[in-house]
């Protein structure tokens, strides 16, 4: 396992934050809603965390909370993906080129 601790973790978070800002600063307004939806999908990665938490839960309470967490996380990922794809499917150019 990779240990991200101390200043190494801070550096990574800082650099990643700049990447996030860079990525979005070039997005045209017409794609803001799909992009918000797309970034919403990306934090659906939380489902992986919820799986790990449930995978290590030992008490019944932990299992119940973990079950809810995994279901919610899966909902985030799947729902986010489907609505983003549906929105993007509709964008067409008048030049007839299949983009």
């Amino acid at each position: 396992m990779i240990e991200l601790t101390g200043f190494l973790a801070l550096y990574i978070v800082m650099l990643t934050a700049f990447v996030g800002i860079e990525i979005i600063s070039r997005v045209p307004v017409i794609l803001h809603t799909p992009l918000m939806s797309g970034s919403n999908f990306v934090h659906g990665i939380v489902v992986v965390g919820a799986m790990i938490a449930l995978g290590h839960a030992e008490t019944t309470l932990g299992q119940i909370i973990g079950f809810i967490g995994v279901a919610l996380g899966a909902g985030n990922a799947v729902g986010g993906y489907v609505v983003t794809e549906r929105m993007l499917e509709m964008f067409k150019s008048s030049k007839g080129s299949k983009a």
């Binding site: 990574i12 990643t16 996030g20 800002i21 990306v42 934090h43 992986v48 965390g49």
Partner: peptide, 19 residues
């Protein structure tokens, strides 16, 4: 201790704040 969550979460956190 999951780097995928840390990085994906931070990207969305930063991009979302700007948006």
């Amino acid at each position: 201790d999951n780097p995928a969550m840390i990085i994906a979460g931070t990207v969305v956190g930063a991009a979302g704040t700007l948006l």
